[in-house]
């Protein structure tokens, strides 16, 4: 007598990614991993915000510029935190030897990746929550609180979504955590550095295009344009295109790579 193996009901399949997400959230926030990263982020942001406020207080830095600096740093460090967490998602499991146990469960690879992606994104959300009081206090003086929070939420979230997906994609391909982290951070530097070069900034035609095409630099430039240069939001659409495309595209790539997850030891 054979026992027919019935496929999982849709409701069970739909909740698999939720189970993975919940497990990843527990692993991230109830272990010291998430809070350690968040503590580092908070400490750095606190020091920078204090120094920027001190300089603004004696007019060595314009108040708007100080808010711009803090918002850009919050976006940069916050998205870096999310990238570090997502870069550990798959390759970390491989190194710890727990990926095999996860892959032999009836959970689809897509659900595994989706759950890890959502959990890693909470790193950015936590960084955003921590950054909000700093930005609110500093932006109150020059009257840019709404713009500062909007930049943080809109540009920061798009850049974070893109980088989180990037980290997860790299993690899916890397056989070890070391390689995954190094490759993710190298990619982030490749994305962030060129637009900071004076030659690029000074180039009249190519400079702005390069900055707009790069999701990280586009997000940071958006902060400068709105907060420091006081440009209208309606004029910033060009700086939102690449973060949106990167967020959607890299997420699709990360999900597509989920089908390549296979059993195998770390190298």
């Amino acid at each position: 007598m054979t026992t027919a193996i019935r496929p999982l009901p849709r409701s069970a399949r739909r909740s698999n990614w939720m189970v993975i997400t919940k497990q990843e959230l527990v692993d991230l926030w109830l272990s010291s991993k998430g809070l350690s990263v968040l503590f580092g982020f908070t400490s750095l942001l606190a020091i920078l915000a204090y120094l920027a406020s001190a300089d603004a207080g004696i007019n060595l830095l314009d108040a708007r510029e100080s808010v711009g600096v803090v918002v850009q740093t919050a976006i940069g460090l916050g998205t870096l935190s999310a990238l570090v967490v997502s870069a550990d998602a798959i390759s970390g499991e491989r190194e710890r030897g727990t990926l095999e146990a996860l892959l032999v469960t009836p959970v689809a690879r897509l659900d595994i990746v989706a759950g890890k992606l959502l959990a890693a994104t909470t790193m950015w959300l936590a960084a955003l929550l921590v950054a909000l009081p700093f930005v609110a206090v500093m932006a109150d003086g020059p009257g840019v609180a709404f713009d500062a929070v909007a930049v943080l939420v809109v540009a920061g979230t798009l850049v974070a979504a893109a980088l989180t997906a990037l980290g997860l994609a790299v993690s899916s391909l890397a056989m070890s955590n070391r390689v995954s982290l190094a490759a993710s951070i190298a990619l982030l530097l490749l994305l962030a550095t060129p637009s900071q070069l004076p030659a690029v900034k000074a180039n009249g035609a190519l400079g702005p295009l390069l900055i707009q095409a790069n999701p990280v630099s586009a997000g940071l430039q958006l902060a400068t344009n709105v907060l420091v240069k006081q440009e209208a939001w309606a004029d910033q659409w060009a700086y939102l295109i690449s973060p949106i495309v990167a967020a959607v595209g890299l997420t699709a790539i990360a999900i597509a790579l989920s089908s390549r997850l296979e059993l195998g030891g770390s190298r």
């Binding site: 908070t42 204090y50 603004a56 207080g57 108040a63 700093f134």
Partner: peptide, 10 residues
């Protein structure tokens, strides 16, 4: 700018 309490508390 009133940032000290936030910089210490966070």
């Amino acid at each position: 700018g009133g940032i000290l309490p936030v910089s210490l508390a966070a």
